[in-house]
Each structure stands twice: as structure tokens, then as C-alpha cells.
């Protein structure tokens, strides 16, 4: 497959959030600010790329019947790596993402790509696929985070745009996550004309 096409598909055509609707929990849970969204997206990207590489390397060794548990162990190992690294170098972000870092393990995108792509393709394509999906995921999370932060507290990446008193607090809280994502997907659907 053409590597360029393989790389660009995750951003729009097969965006994991907007089109495939996978990995909704972190999408809604951590996007109260743009930085949180971006941090979560990049952490997931790392896990996606590494898990895809390892899965495509060992795909011929693993027996068919135990492949799902094996994939989960590989993914969980990389999630633990991310968890420890973030705890050491980005303690503030680690704290605000909280429970959702270990929950990358059960993010359907990661297992989904391992099963649907990496277990059938060579190492390079799998790495590119992981990067594409991960960056598309990061893009979606950052977009949603920016929108919620802007509407809710009048800030963008922590920079003040308008006074906080005029912000709609609702968008930083739980209901705002659902509503903002709903309208965002509707908008994307409109652009894609489905």
C-alpha cells in the first residue's frame, strides 16, 4: 500500500473519533482543556505505534487462538511504560489525566488496529498506520479540548481570549463534553456529506 495514503487516512477519511467512533471514553473524559487533550492523544499515539510494531513483528509466532490476550499483554506493557514515564517527567499532566492513562489499555482503537491492521501487515506499514491513527486521534482530542476550553473558560491552550466570567461553565463539565462532541461529529458528517 502507498505509505502516503496510509499515513493521511487517519486524519480525516478514517479518523478514529469522528468516523470510526472508537475510543470515546478518553475523548470525553480528558478534553476539558486543549493541553489535556493533546497530552492524552500523544500518549495514545506512542502506545499505538509501539504496539503495532511489536504485534506485526511477532504475528507469525503467536498462535491464532491466543492472539487477543497476547495483544492485550503487549499493549499493557507499553501503557505501563507511558504511565511510568509520565509520572516521572510530566507529573502535572499525569495527575490531570489520572485514571485515563491506565485505561489506554482498554481503548478500542489500540486493540482494533493491532487486530485489524498490524496482525496482517509488515512492520513499516504498521508503524505508519499506528502514527496515522494516533495523530488523527490527537487531532480530534485537541480540537474538542480547544472548543470546550474556549467556550467554557474563554481560554485557548491556557491563553486568555475573553474574560472567564463570560464563559459557559457547562462546557468544561461533563454534559458539555457530550454536547460539544455531538455537534462536532454532526459538522464533520456535513462536510463529508454522508
Amino acid at each position: 500500500m502507498n505509505q502516503m495514503n496510509n499515513f493521511t487516512k487517519g486524519f480525516f477519511k478514517e479518523n478514529p473519533i469522528f468516523v470510526l467512533l472508537l475510543g470515546m471514553c478518553p475523548t470525553l473524559g480528558v478534553t476539558s482543556s486543549a493541553i489535556n487533550g493533546l497530552g492524552m492523544g500523544l500518549a495514545t499515539t506512542f502506545v499505538l505505534v509501539m504496539a503495532n510494531i511489536v504485534v506485526s513483528m511477532v504475528k507469525n509466532i503467536i498462535p491464532e487462538k491466543v492472539r487477543i490476550p497476547s495483544f492485550i499483554v503487549i499493549i499493557a506493557a507499553f501503557v505501563t511504560v507511558v504511565e511510568l514515564l509520565m509520572q516521572a517527567y510530566l507529573p502535572a499532566l499525569f495527575k490531570s489525566l489520572g485514571l485515563f492513562i491506565p485505561l489506554i489499555v482498554v481503548n478500542c482503537i489500540v486493540l482494533g488496529r493491532a487486530e485489524a491492521f498490524a496482525s496482517k501487515n509488515d512492520v513499516l506499514s504498521s508503524a505508519v498506520d499506528g502514527a496515522s491513527m494516533g495523530l488523527g486521534f490527537s487531532l480530534a482530542l485537541t480540537m474538542l479540548g480547544t472548543i470546550r476550553e474556549f467556550l467554557g473558560s474563554g481560554m485557548m491552550f491556557g491563553i486568555k481570549i475573553f474574560p472567564e466570567d463570560y464563559g459557559m461553565l457547562l462546557f468544561v463539565l461533563a454534559p458539555g463534553a457530550f454536547i460539544a462532541l455531538g455537534y462536532l461529529i454532526a459538522l464533520i458528517n456535513r462536510i463529508r456529506k454522508v
Binding site: P175, I179, G182, I185, L187
Partner: peptide
């Protein structure tokens, strides 16, 4: 409902209103 909102988008918005009720 409007075509673009059909399916998941409207479901998410309804979930948001439900979450508001739980607040």
C-alpha cells in the same frame, strides 16, 4: 431530525442533556 445530526450526534447531545439532569 436534520440529516447531519442523525445517529451518533443526536445520541451524544441527548446524553449530554441526560448528564445535565444528573448534575
Amino acid at each position: 431530525i436534520p440529516k447531519g445530526l442523525k445517529g451518533t450526534p443526536i445520541a451524544l447531545i441527548v446524553a449530554g442533556i441526560l448528564a445535565m439532569a444528573f448534575m
